[in-house]
Computed example of a mutant assay.
Amino acid sequence: MIRQLVTRAGLVLAGALTATVAFAGPAAAHGADAPDGTDYRTEVSAVAPARPGLSVRVVEAGARLELTNTGDRAVEVLGYSGEPYLRVGPDGVYENVRSPATYLNRTIAGDTRLPAEADPAAVPDWRRVDDSSTVRWHDQRALWRESAPPPQVRAAPDREHRVRDWTVPLRAGTDTGEIRGTLDWVPPPDAYVWWVAATVGLLTVGALGLLPARSRPGARALAGVGGLLIVGGVAAVVFTVGRELDAGARGVGGVLTGLLGGQVWALLTGLGAIAAGVFALARRPAADFALALAGTCLALFAGVANAAVFARAIAPVPWPATTARILVALILVAGAGATAAGALRLHATSRTPTPPTLDPAHPHPTKP
């Protein structure tokens, strides 16, 4: 009876988590506006002329530019018509509410409707948006916004191509400057190979659940799946932290703030998988249920949610894209494999016949 209740509770929790992925996941992705991967590599080559305390880098897999100005003079980023757009200096970050770029750059698609007051020729109307010395923004000059690839890419999609050299103009008082960078097309990997490898791996791990649960091989299988789930949980935490670092988080505090604000589900499932793996290694009661539930969450929130890296050349982490694909494949193998193994062990245990009841007056089993 208890095992049936636990199994039913697992099904309810799994359904609730699946619904959360279906409904909350897209909203969270839209709110962050950060891609899960891309085939366009955006790089900053120089800031000219160089200024003390001024630095620019690419974040969110190239989706945004990040400018930091710790100097004693404010620096303005100019918009698409040469109008003042952003101002970063000792007194914080300001945006010009009369600049069309203020609205166009709110989304990576650049499809925000312009309000009536947006006029690049109007006198700037500055609004303070942050008290730091750093600002991040989408810039259409550094992005490829068309749905179809450039002509040279369509002609030879298996080769790397320079799409354009781009510049973003800057101004500090009467001094002018610019951010210089490049935009390149990088051929994507063959996603089929990665999906096949992940599928073979998770089926292999899941097959361990076929070993008799109460046998010595079954006990070793439980420990093996638990150990693998710990590795998958660690991979999920590493990948999640990597996404925050690529999004521009600085320091432990910045990473924690980003994790709790946008990557909390992936972080929690990674930590939960580690806890469930330790639970299984200790051979605690209900370890099979813990493996199945934690594996499901890990596969959904940290595996499937990041599987776009299998088909994208540029991953949203500060490491080579191949490293990101290995981490996600490991998460899927550990998560889905633990789910299958745990479910098979639960099913086999539920079908094990109950030992006959012994009567204290008659120590031998009684026949029904």
Results as ranks from 00 to 15, higher is better:
Met1Asn: 13
Gln4Asn: 11
Val6Trp: 10
Thr7Asn: 14
Gly10Phe: 00
Thr18Glu: 07
Ala24Ser: 06
Ala24Cys: 07
Gly25Cys: 00
Ala27Ser: 11
His30Asn: 13
His30Ala: 15
His30Pro: 01
Ala32Gly: 01
Tyr40Arg: 03
Arg41Asp: 04
Ala48Leu: 11
Pro49Val: 06
Pro52Asn: 09
Gly53Val: 08
Arg57Asp: 04
Val58Met: 02
Ala63His: 01
Arg64His: 02
Leu67Cys: 03
Leu67Phe: 03
Arg73Thr: 14
Ala74Met: 00
Ala74Cys: 02
Val75Glu: 07
Glu76Ser: 15
Pro84Leu: 11
Gly92Lys: 05
Asn96His: 15
Asn105Val: 11
Arg106Met: 07
Ala116Tyr: 08
Asp119Gly: 00
Ala122Ile: 06
Val129Ser: 11
Asp130Glu: 09
Asp130Cys: 09
Ser132Asp: 11
Arg136Asp: 06
Trp137Leu: 08
Gln140Arg: 15
Arg145Ala: 09
Glu146Leu: 12
Ser147Val: 10
Pro149Cys: 06
Ala155Lys: 10
Ala155Tyr: 03
Pro157Asp: 00
Pro157Met: 06
Arg159His: 15
Arg159Asp: 13
Arg162Ile: 13
Trp166Arg: 03
Leu170Lys: 00
Thr174Val: 10
Gly177His: 05
Glu178Arg: 13
Glu178Pro: 06
Gly181Glu: 00
Asp184Met: 05
Trp185Asp: 05
Pro189Asn: 04
Trp195Gln: 09
Val196Gly: 07
Val200Asp: 10
Leu203Val: 14
Val205Asn: 05
Gly209Met: 03
Gly209Phe: 06
Arg216Leu: 12
Arg220His: 15
Arg220Cys: 12
Ala221Asn: 07
Ala221Met: 06
Leu222His: 11
Gly224Ala: 15
Val225Pro: 09
Gly226Met: 14
Gly226His: 12
Ile230Gly: 01
Ile230Asn: 02
Val231Ser: 01
Ala235His: 02
Val237Cys: 07
Arg243Tyr: 03
Glu244Tyr: 05
Asp246Leu: 05
Gly251His: 10
Gly253Met: 10
Gly253His: 12
Gly254Arg: 00
Leu259His: 01
Leu259Pro: 00
Leu259Trp: 01
Leu260Gln: 12
Gly262Asn: 03
Val264Glu: 07
Ala266Phe: 05
Leu267Trp: 08
Gly270Met: 00
Leu271Tyr: 08
Gly272Asn: 02
Ala275Trp: 13
Ala275Gln: 13
Ala276Gly: 08
Gly277Val: 12
Ala280Val: 08
Ala282Gly: 03
Ala287Pro: 11
Asp288Lys: 08
Thr296Gly: 09
Thr296Arg: 01
Leu298Arg: 09
Ala299Gln: 06
Ala299Leu: 04
Phe301Gln: 02
Phe301Trp: 00
Phe301Glu: 03
Gly303Ala: 11
Ala307Tyr: 01
Ala313Leu: 06
Pro316Ile: 04
Val317Ser: 03
Pro318Lys: 01
Trp319Ser: 07
Pro320Tyr: 01
Thr322Gly: 07
Val328Cys: 06
Leu332Phe: 11
Val333Met: 08
Ala334Lys: 04
Ala334Arg: 03
Gly337His: 02
Ala338Thr: 08
Ala338Asn: 10
Thr339Leu: 14
Ala341Trp: 10
Gly342Trp: 00
Leu344Phe: 14
Arg345Trp: 12
Arg351Thr: 12
Thr352Phe: 05
Pro353Glu: 05
Thr354Phe: 11
Pro355Trp: 11
Thr357Ile: 09
Thr366Leu: 06
